[in-house]
Structures are given as structure tokens and as C-alpha cells.
Nucleic acid binder design. Structure first.
Length: 470
RNA sequence: GGCGUCGUGGCGGAGUGGUCACGCAGCGGACUGCAAAUCCGUGUACGCCAGUUCGAUUCUGGCCGACGCCUCCA
């Protein structure tokens, strides 16, 4: 039984799908005017693990992740770059897909774009006006927040408190400062669509209401996103969908925590963000993934070189254990799998799940030194199998270990082939072998130091010498 | 100001009313020509103050501190 923390209730509860064996989930995706940063990566990876684990647990998953391809920032960025909105958004959508592939994030079943659903948004806005919860004003359409009784429930806010804390100047067209825009009248030169209220474009929140209803229905199982979307975005989504469809909308709300830098939220406005592709210049995407999974998805996670280094070291230990073992055995679940499942069933406790992988690595190393082949391949299969549920350990171990960190970034999808200078390294190892055979340890140590200076570590074993980068 | 999350050993990070996380780093041992890798061992950690309890890091209350949301943001 999978238990999930529901932001709406503040408690964990067993997952009960509306349709037996089928999970329908919607996760807020990106606004595509820039590259993915580590914060996006965390959300992407966190919900990718949710998706993978649900599938592993036997569910069919219909996962929707939207793409916001029209909004103020996109318009501004395109104008600043002197390029069209289409060119800009296409570029960053492609970049996002590349980043996802690097991070091992599976493609969701649907990736709807806001601009493809404008007609539906207009229709929902009309319904909201008919129902008396929205009003047109100077070409804008606003949602009258006070008309929706449950407003603030998700974020635990009261209308009065929100008004007291309001830091935004009141827009003259708003009847209540908290009312939010469903439709924006077009300004000259801006992209626009025809509507009953004149030319304009949708507000941000309405797209998610319309696209989720269109692809998943007006009542589905899971809705996720970053903590910062809880208010106002998800609150507004609820107000829109529930009022327009007279529905329950979402059963379980999930929110991932932030990535911090020096204990501060990584964000565009603070300028303390790193993009996924920058980071991949000096480490492999799988390390980033392991780093994200090293803490539970709801808590904060601190981005630092040392924490990344630790994630790398932990992952390397797993790959070292798997090295040289054929990946041909079928996974047979043992107590380790049971422990893994208990951890994951508890609101996706990935740190605990990773501890299980480490325990398997130790057992594997022990079985290896005992030369218990049956046990070795069984444990290796279980380790790989559970790793796959987290989207880890998908590479060939030897390839992983023989790929230089600085040439990383292209290794998540195993492509075979070791580093280019492998032949040269092998030659030096052979020379050293000869020296050792002749008991010329001075020479053999010289060769080893030579290689070490290039970041290559040698390991002498019963079957000869192996090498890896570090 | 309102609302909320959190505070675990050198670091990261789970978890629990009373023997165990796990990883990184360190130290000792085994192994090794020496290393590396691996295995074994090793740390009186649970913000502060009270309360409940035979016993609290784990429950309750208060305090302090950090962070977040209240405005676009994963």
C-alpha cells in the first residue's frame, strides 16, 4: 500500500485510485523561456520517480506534464532576443527534452502546450462567467475569489489574511485585490487570440485547469509541482476547475521542496541558479539524479560541490560493486526488495531506498569475494532492478567507471565504448605488469603514479589490474 | 504582520518511546610488494527549557533559530 503525503490535508494517506490500477497524474511543467535549472531538475526527477515507482507497483500511469509556451516572460524574452515566440519556445522545449533525457526522466504520456488549448480556455472562462464567479472588465476577465468558498484551503490561507498581507498594488479593474486574471486583454504588438472579450491571451492558471480536465477528466488522482506553486497557482486552479466543472478535481496534491544554495532558495530572481547543462559540464547527469534522490522530495536540499561529490562517491560505490558482472540474470525479489518497497511506499522515501542499494552493494561485494557466482548474479540483478526503479544504475558499470568526469554529459544512455585513450592506458598497465612480474616495484609504482596524475586509479586484483577514472 | 515547514554525530541524510540506518570523510584491523578496491571494527547525534513516562531524540507545551509562502518562480 502506497502512502502519499497530501498537501491538502497535511497528512499521509493510502493511495486510492479512482479507477482501479490506473493512476492519472498531472504535474506542472516549465515555462519555456530559459534552460532548466537544478530546481526544475529536482521536480522533474522527483515526479519521474513517483511515476516509475507507481508503474513498478503495477499501476498503469497516465502522466501529463504541461508546457507553458505563452506568458509575459516569454513575450519579454522573445522581444529582447529579437526572435519570434515560436522560435524561442521551440528552442527551450528542445533543450528541456535534452535535459530530461540526460537526467533519465521518462517522457510523460502527454505534454500539452498552452497555446494548443486556448479555445478550451475561452470556453472554461465563459462557463465561469455564466456561473457568476468571473467577470469581464476592460477586456480582462477576472476570477472573483470571494465567490469560491474553498479558496485558500490548499495553502492554508484565509482571504482576510491574504488581503492584510497583500504586497501588490491594486489593479483598478479588480473588484477585490485578490481576484486573479483568467484572460488578459492584448497590448499592442503582443500575440493574441480572439475571444468574446476582444483580443487577448490566457492568464497563467487557466491552462492547467483546461489541459488537466481535457486529458484526465475533471476528477483525477494526483497533481504535483513545486512548493512555490501551491499558492497562488494551484489554489487558483482549484477555484477554476471546481467552479467550472462542479467537481472534486484532485484527490492528492504533492509538492516537492526547493533546491537551496547557501540555505536560500535557488531562483531566477535571486540569480543563484545553475542550469542543468552548466552543471553537466563537470559531472554526469546521473550524479545529479542521485543527489536529488539523496533526500526526501518534500524537504529542502542544499546544492553544493561537496554534496554533489558525496552523491558521486555513493554512486561510484554501487558501480564498482556491479563492475564485471553480466546483466543477464532475472531479478528475484528478496528482503532487500521488501525493504525498498516499504521505504518507497512511505511517501517515496528515496534516501532509505538508496540505503537499500548500498546494502545490496555490500552483500554483492561479499558474495564476490566468496566467489559465489549464483549469489553474485542474483544480487547484481536485484541491485540493478531496484536501481532502475529510481532511474539509476542504467549504465554499464565499466563504461561508467572508465568515462572521465569532464567528458561526462553524454553517458546516461549507454553508448558503449570507453574513453579514447583507453588503449594507451592499457599499454601502460601492461608495462607495469611486466615490471611487477620482474619485481621492479620502483618502476611499477612510477607507472601507477603517472596514471594517477592523470586521474586514473589502478586496482590490482587476482585477475589482473583494472583501472577507472577518478 | 499572517500562514507554514524544519532544526539528528565532522558532512549529507533516514528513522524510532527503551540493541542497527545508510553514504561521505576520519581512525584501527584484514587483504596487498606497497597501494587501490573490498570486508570487519570504530563515533555516549538527535536546537534550548519544562512536562507526560519506569524511560524521550522520538509524545505535549513554551522558547530560540533557519527557511519558505503571502508577488512571477519547480
Amino acid at each position: 500500500m502506497i502512502e502519499i503525503f497530501n498537501s491538502m490535508t497535511g497528512q499521509k494517506a493510502p493511495l486510492k485510485t479512482l479507477e482501479p490500477g490506473h493512476v492519472r497524474m498531472y504535474v506542472c511543467g516549465m515555462t519555456v523561456y530559459d534552460f532548466c535549472h537544478i530546481g526544475h531538475a529536482r521536480s522533474l526527477v522527483a515526479f519521474d520517480v513517483v511515476r516509475r515507482y507507481l508503474k513498478y507497483s503495477g499501476y498503469r500511469v497516465t502522466h501529463v506534464r504541461n508546457i507553458t509556451d505563452i506568458d509575459d516572460k516569454i513575450i519579454a524574452r522573445a522581444a529582447a532576443n529579437g526572435e519570434s515566440i515560436e522560435t524561442l519556445t521551440k528552442r527551450f522545449i528542445d533543450a528541456m527534452h535534452e535535459d530530461c533525457e540526460q537526467l533519465g526522466v521518462e517522457r510523460p504520456e502527454h505534454e500539452p502546450r498552452a497555446t494548443e488549448y486556448v479555445a478550451g480556455m475561452v470556453a472554461m472562462i465563459e462557463t465561469l462567467i455564466e456561473k457568476g464567479v468571473a467577470y469581464a472588465s476592460d477586456g480582462d476577465v477576472l476570477y472573483a475569489v470571494a465567490k469560491f468558498p474553498g479558496y485558500g484551503r490548499l495553502s492554508g490561507k484565509k482571504l482576510a489574511d491574504l488581503r492584510a498581507g497583500a504586497r501588490v498594488e491594486v489593479d483598478a479593474s479588480k473588484r477585490d485585490p485578490l481576484d486573479f486574471v483568467l484572460w488578459k486583454a492584448a497590448k499592442p504588438g503582443e500575440p493574441s487570440w480572439d475571444s468574446p472579450w476582444g483580443k487577448g491571451r490566457p492568464g497563467w492558471h487557466i491552462e492547467c485547469s483546461v489541459m488537466s480536465v481535457a486529458l484526465l477528466g475533471d476528477h483525477f488522482d494526483l497533481h504535483g509541482g513545486g512548493m512555490d506553486l501551491k499558492f497562488p497557482h494551484h489554489e487558483n486552479e482549484i477555484a477554476q476547475t471546481c467552479a467550472a466543472c462542479d467537481s472534486t478535481f484532485v484527490n492528492v496534491w504533492m509538492h516537492n521542496g526547493f533546491v537551496n544554495v547557501d540555505a536560500e532558495k535557488m531562483s531566477k530572481s535571486l540569480g543563484n541558479f545553475f542550469t542543468v547543462r552548466e552543471v553537466q559540464k563537470h559531472l554526469r547527469p546521473e550524479v545529479l539524479r542521485a543527489f536529488v534522490l539523496s533526500s526526501q522530495y518534500r524537504g529542502p536540499i542544499n546544492y553544493s560541490d561537496d554534496n554533489l561529490r558525496q552523491a558521486d562517491a555513493g554512486l561510484e560505490r554501487l558501480y564498482v560493486a556491479l563492475r564485471g558482472i553480466a546483466a543477464d540474470a532475472v531479478m528475484v525479489p528478496t528482503e532487500a526488495t521488501e525493504r525498498f518497497r516499504v521505504a518507497m511506499n512511505d511517501d517515496f522515501n528515496t534516501p532509505e531506498a538508496m540505503a537499500v542499494l548500498q546494502a545490496l552493494a555490500r552483500d554483492l561485494n561479499i558474495a564476490k569475494s566468496a566467489s559465489d557466482q549464483a549469489k553474485v548474479s542474483a544480487i547484481a540483478a536485484e541491485l540493478r532492478g531496484l536501481g532502475a526503479v529510481l532511474g539509476l544504475l542504467g549504465c554499464d558499470a565499466d563504461t561508467w567507471l572508465k568515462t572521465r568526469p569532464e567528458s561526462a554529459g553524454v553517458t546516461h544512455v549507454v553508448s558503449g565504448g570507453v574513453a579514447p585513450e583507453a588503449a594507451e592506458i592499457e599499454a601502460l598497465i601492461e608495462a607495469r605488469r611486466a615490471a611487477r612480474a620482474a619485481k621492479d616495484f620502483k618502476e611499477s609504482d612510477r607507472v601507477r603514479d603517472l596514471l594517477l596524475a592523470r586521474g586514473i586509479i589502478l586496482e590490482d586484483g587476482p585477475e589482473g589490474t583494472r583501472w577507472r577514472y577518478r
